[in-house]
Amino acid sequence: MTHSPKDAFDKLARIYEQQVEQDSPYNTDYERPAMLSMLPDKLEGLAILDAGCSAGWYTKTLLEKGAAVTAIDISPEMVKAAARRTGGAARIICHDLNQPLPFEAHSFDMIVSSLTLHYCKDWFPIFKEFSRVLKPKGLLLFSTHHPFMDFKLFNCENYFEEVLLHDTWKKAGTSFEVSFYRKPLEKIVTETSRFFVIDELSEPRGTESFKENYPENYEYIMTNPHFLIIKATSRKFAD
Rank of each mutant, 00 (worst) to 15 (best):
residue 2 T to P: 15
residue 3 H to W: 08
residue 4 S to H: 09
residue 5 P to F: 05
residue 6 K to N: 11
residue 11 K to P: 03
residue 13 A to I: 01
residue 13 A to Y: 00
residue 19 Q to A: 11
residue 20 V to A: 13
residue 21 E to P: 05
residue 23 D to G: 12
residue 23 D to I: 15
residue 30 Y to D: 06
residue 38 M to T: 06
residue 41 D to S: 15
residue 45 G to F: 05
residue 54 S to H: 07
residue 54 S to N: 13
residue 57 W to T: 07
residue 57 W to L: 09
residue 58 Y to A: 09
residue 59 T to A: 05
residue 62 L to H: 02
residue 62 L to I: 05
residue 67 A to D: 02
residue 69 V to D: 00
residue 69 V to K: 00
residue 69 V to C: 03
residue 71 A to I: 00
residue 71 A to E: 01
residue 72 I to L: 08
residue 74 I to K: 00
residue 75 S to W: 00
residue 77 E to V: 08
residue 77 E to W: 01
residue 81 A to V: 03
residue 82 A to E: 00
residue 85 R to H: 12
residue 87 G to L: 01
residue 87 G to E: 03
residue 88 G to N: 05
residue 89 A to L: 08
residue 90 A to M: 00
residue 90 A to Q: 00
residue 93 I to Y: 01
residue 95 H to S: 08
residue 100 P to Y: 01
residue 101 L to W: 00
residue 102 P to K: 03
residue 102 P to Q: 05
residue 106 H to L: 09
residue 108 F to C: 07
residue 110 M to E: 03
residue 111 I to S: 03
residue 113 S to W: 01
residue 115 L to H: 08
residue 118 H to W: 03
residue 128 K to V: 04
residue 129 E to D: 15
residue 130 F to C: 04
residue 132 R to W: 04
residue 145 H to C: 09
residue 146 H to I: 05
residue 152 K to C: 14
residue 154 F to G: 08
residue 155 N to R: 14
residue 156 C to N: 10
residue 156 C to S: 07
residue 163 V to D: 12
residue 163 V to P: 08
residue 164 L to G: 09
residue 164 L to V: 08
residue 167 D to F: 01
residue 171 K to I: 06
residue 173 G to C: 02
residue 177 E to M: 10
residue 180 F to D: 03
residue 184 P to V: 00
residue 187 K to S: 11
residue 188 I to E: 14
residue 189 V to Q: 11
residue 190 T to A: 15
residue 190 T to S: 15
residue 193 S to Q: 12
residue 197 V to Q: 14
residue 198 I to N: 02
residue 199 D to C: 13
residue 200 E to F: 05
residue 201 L to I: 13
residue 202 S to R: 14
residue 204 P to T: 05
residue 204 P to G: 07
residue 206 G to S: 14
residue 210 F to G: 02
residue 213 N to T: 13
residue 216 E to F: 10
residue 217 N to V: 07
residue 217 N to R: 15
residue 217 N to E: 15
residue 218 Y to C: 10
residue 222 M to S: 12
residue 223 T to N: 14
residue 227 F to Q: 10
residue 239 D to R: 11
